[in-house]
Design a protein around this nucleic acid. Structure first.
Ligand SMILES: [Mn+2]
Ligand SMILES: [Mn+2]
Ligand SMILES: [Zn+2]
Ligand SMILES: [Zn+2]
Lengths: 136, 136
DNA sequence: CTACTAGTGCAACCCGATTGCAAAGATTAT
DNA sequence: ATAATCTTTGCAATCGGGTTGCACTAGTAG
């Protein structure tokens, strides 16, 4: 697992206090985080600074965003080597019981046969249901 | 193609003026519509009435909603026989150029192999790119 | 040290979604 | 037919996530 500093260096994003603490927080949790989640977890860091940090991270492919239908955009750290290309696509799983969203890096995404002349650029694939913890 | 009245009767939703006009509007277009889209198209119908109509339709499986990442929830009429079960899942295509969102009823959704003990209930699968019209 | 650039905090704002409430309409009971 | 009851509708107000303007601070280059 890479450290915050290594990731920021690789992705050519200048290291600052806010960026370090936000990225460290994202790395410390296995589930995707909303702006509100991060704000709550980092009470001394301003919301708009976190917001702009997330935008910067997303532009530079440090993180990717997920629209899981909860009404809040969630963010998760990209896998090592990710370029946010179609090849880096993966499912996201939203647990309707515990409200957690994870990246399913291990579930292969099959080839999508689009209608003629459609061009794939990106995708937001959210699978919803019960996670292993909640499905008992 | 079923008429508004037939659909509402089958889905056991009482027919009212607002419901008829909203459903007719959704049926008349091939692309998914946002609340704002519908509001603009039906200037004499109140936004909150349209909103509540959409909620009623969704609860009764007359329509389904799509989170396409545009910031506005879109709505599309369910296919005949749809029960909004996992078997009725289909991709949605969001054109990043013309901003239209369609249901890809004809593209099969492959089986998704979730990790052990995860249970699939629903999904929101949005593929983004260029539609045939815009990909020239 | 000085000039310039990038990052931060705070407050205000935007806008889609949602709700409270009273009037209008439809349904059921008397 | 009339009254009581339930549902739907319109309007205005509110909520909440996201976003932005602006002044201040920190960092960098000359
Ligand atoms: Mn992910
Ligand atoms: Mn659809
Ligand atoms: Zn769960
Ligand atoms: Zn298009």
């Amino acid at each position: 697992m890479q450290t915050e500093e290594e990731i920021l260096k690789i992705k050519k994003v200048k290291n600052t206090a806010v960026r370090t603490v936000v990225l460290r927080h994202l790395l410390s949790l296995e589930k995707a985080q909303s702006l509100k989640d991060i704000e709550n977890a980092l009470p001394y860091t301003d919301r708009s600074s976190i917001f702009r940090t997330l935008k910067t991270f997303e532009e530079n492919k440090v993180i990717h965003s997920i629209e899981d239908g909860s009404g809040m955009t969630k963010y998760a750290v990209c896998a090592e080597g990710c370029n946010c290309d179609p090849k880096d696509l993966h499912y996201h799983f939203y647990c309707t019981n515990c409200d957690r969203t994870f990246c399913l890096f291990d579930v292969p995404i099959p080839n999508i046969e689009l209608p003629a002349n459609f061009k794939l650029q990106q995708a937001n694939m959210v699978v919803k249901g019960l996670c292993d913890n909640c499905n008992r």
